[in-house]
Amino acid sequence: METSRFNSHYRGISLMLLIILVITALFSMRYGAVDLSLGEIFSSLGKFFSGDSDGSLNERIFAEIRLPRAILCVLVGASLSVGGTLMQALFRNPIVEPGLVGTSSGAAFGAALYFVLGALFEYNAGEWTLPFAACAGGMVATILVFVLSQSKQTGKSSIIALLLTGIAINALFLSGVGFLSYIARDPQARSITFWNLGTLSGANWHSVIIIGTSTVLCLVLALRYAKQLNALMIGEEEAQYLGVNIKRLKMTVLLINVVMVAVATAFVGVISFVGLIVPHLLRLLKGSDNRFLILNSALMGGILLSLADLVARLLLRPAELPIGIVTSAVGVPVFIVLLRRKNYYF
């Protein structure tokens, strides 16, 4: 009997992506300034889970540097890509991503502010202050872009207005980051390339736990809104006729996106184009159903960012490039190809 088209299954693709993700992560853990053998990886994994802290130098490199970094890569890639998927669905436009509508630069500004003010007042309110500051910054910037790009007559944002406002707000917040970096005493905040180009070199278990929490919570929440975001594809009024509470949907999805992207940005800086490209690749693969896109963009985002991080570490080894250079170098050409394709209508 023919299978029904109304109940599509995406498990095949998800499973495939999961396998590729594991393989990519293994590769990413194996190669770097020092190459580890698979034997070393598995023996230190064994020790890691049994709580055995002794080990060779290589095993400790793995447990304290490579493993958290690989996990962080997957989490950040997932956050940025799901954020991109959500923003594209919300703005009803395929060329939107968190970096273009101010979320990332706002988050970077919030985080930089935390570092600088924290150092000035020698004030520390616990480990959740940094992600909170980044969220606040990301929220302010995103809402600014959202509100300023709305036309006074219709209350809707045209994509041109949106992108131009995004450029302006990004420039504003990144110059704010530049200023803060200039006067900063904190060594991490002082490095302006860290904020503008992004790097995962600061990965540790602490950041893995915080980003992991926000990624998983936001992903679960985002999946609950997939169907409503689908309805939004045929228009805001039409979605309302299909029973969607538009105001609540917009607020919630915006909040989910900001938290996901801002928390990641607080620890790794601004990484562009991942959130833009991943949803596009998936749409080419299977279609625009958000129920498919959200979950699988998490997997594919993890894969792409792991690959980008591997390239960033291998190209100039033993030194490493900021990962944002790699994602932009690959992302910009892809972005331009997408802009010139004919099956999207802007």
Partner: peptide, 9 residues
């Protein structure tokens, strides 16, 4: 529509 969709979708 903002994204390509199949008719049945």
């Amino acid at each position: 529509l903002s994204f390509p969709l199949k008719v049945w979708e």
